[in-house]
Design a protein around this nucleic acid. Sequence first.
RNA 1: GCCCCCGUAGCUCAAUGGAUAGAGCGCCGGACUUCUAAGCCGCGAUAUGCUUGUUCGAUUCAAGCCGGGGGCACCA
Length: 565
Amino acid sequence: MKSLVATQLLESIQRLHAQGMWPGTDWTATELLLAGLVEQIETPDVKTHGDYSSPVALRLAKVLRASPLILAKQIAEDVMRPSRSTQVFEKVEVAAPGFLNFFLTSGALVTTVTEILEQDKKYGSTDLFKGQKILVEFISANPTGPLTFANGRGGFTGDVLVNLLKVLGAKAQREYYVNDRGVQIETLAESVIRRWLIDQGMKVDFPENLYQGEYISDLVKALKLDTHTKTSVQELTKLKAGLKTKALKHMLKDIQRVITDKMGIKFDEYFSEASLYKTGEIQEMLSFLKEAELVYEQDGATWMRTTNFGDDKDRVLVKSDGETTYFLSDVAYHWNKFHVRKYTWAINLLGADHHGYIGRLKAAVEALSRAGQFKEKPRMDILIMQMVRLMKNGEEVRMSKRKGQFITIEEVIDEVGIDAVRFFFLMYASNTHMDFDLQLAKEKNEKNPVYYVQYAHARISSILKQIKKAPTVTQIDLHAEAELALAKHLLQYPDLLKQMGQDFGVHALPQYSIEVARLFHAFYAKCRVIEDEKVNPSRYALIRATQIVLRNALSMMGISAPKSM
RNA sequence: GCCCCCGUAGCUCAAUGGAUAGAGCGCCGGACUUCUAAGCCGCGAUAUGCUUGUUCGAUUCAAGCCGGGGGCACCA
């Protein structure tokens, strides 16, 4: 549809140029312009009042310094000249600041509706990212406590992003990076031991730096530690090593349960940080960096020269006490992504509190890339998920996993329902700070726009159910404004997906589906599909197309499309 | 002090540098004997934090300021 508009326009401009009516004499400039025009036309705007518009003329003015209005008029006249056989445009209008408004004929819309019906589940699919092997890493929360509601943001965004990339033709995988080593795991084990003793009535202190949450007690119970004989903290230290693994395993299992059963996310892999040590990749990485002279020793520690690659300071890989840092793991992890597993593209979703990490990560990948570690220069995008503030009665409640002050994502899902929760987290741009009030979320549950969208789908299903025999659609005829507005919006879906592939703005999807639902509900109120027990074939086709688009959009968001509500 | 994000209607949020800045919620009003009222229609003279700049045109870009959040470890 877009290429049709672009083609028409280009033809006209070329004609004008051939006739010497084009104001520029410099053909190179015009060619540049044409390229720009195509780009401009690629994402046209369908305004609610029903025209295809694009701010073309003013662009012309900028490049050629010509009068935009005159130019626009010339183009408009040429596009609509009588000799043309095209049935694409009803009319072309020149609007005040130099816009060209293309009004589509209903015939052009009909083509689209037919296309949607034919393509069905494939409608919106393209091969934009064909051949790309993309690894999307998200959530990756430390396995030292349950997932909080804030993890919902990155969780659902990442999940939908992968769905999107797949529809755009890429091979995309979901990955959760598990930080299953380091002091935090020690702390977890220590917390479990002390809590265990305290729960048995022993007087043991419980330092502030340990995990205070209720879940530690649950963990103690789940680990069935009470079969051991009572003993002191000191003696238990021996048990700690074994306990560490057990506690970790249990915690991770619980996280996976929530992710799979509650959040409905299927990770392709839970990648263990510790595994990088077992396979020797950490050592391999370190020796390589040394050979490549990307590191140096200072104050007894080993530093990586990340500043050579855009970081604002160098970073420690091995501490002076001989312990390796998290950063070293991450360097090896990314080396693993691109070198070992041969991904060409990685997308990492990070919480805003980790934004300071971007510089060193990009520097590390750049360093490895320049050192010839990857077949081709990999692409890496880091998406920052802004903070979600927990509100209570208009006031912020500070969350802390350590202090045990948090609301789990599981609680929220159980309370509000997965569809509403998904929609809630997905509908806002990830770079805005959002406020979350559980009380309000419960109250507003019924008012969540997700039901508005689902209701549209249910209404369509209900109509279709009453149609015993599907009418043969020979010719689609759409006239009413409500019909046309709906059809025009449906045809934008593929463009929307492409756009989302460019900027990863997944929140456009809920916004779009609300708009489709809105247009459908308006259509529903004004136009009947079944009238006097007769089915209107054109409207039948239109609602089926609407159902397809809604279903595809909902399915991409991981939200159910109910047949009745 | 330096770095990142945000500031749009009473509230929560939209808007590739374009036309009269849009939705939802809330408030008020209206319509129904027919496909689901979780719906439709109407209702905001006075919503882009402030000041400059770039541009034919700025919510969008740049600079400065104000306000809010986050980050600046040989932690993860």
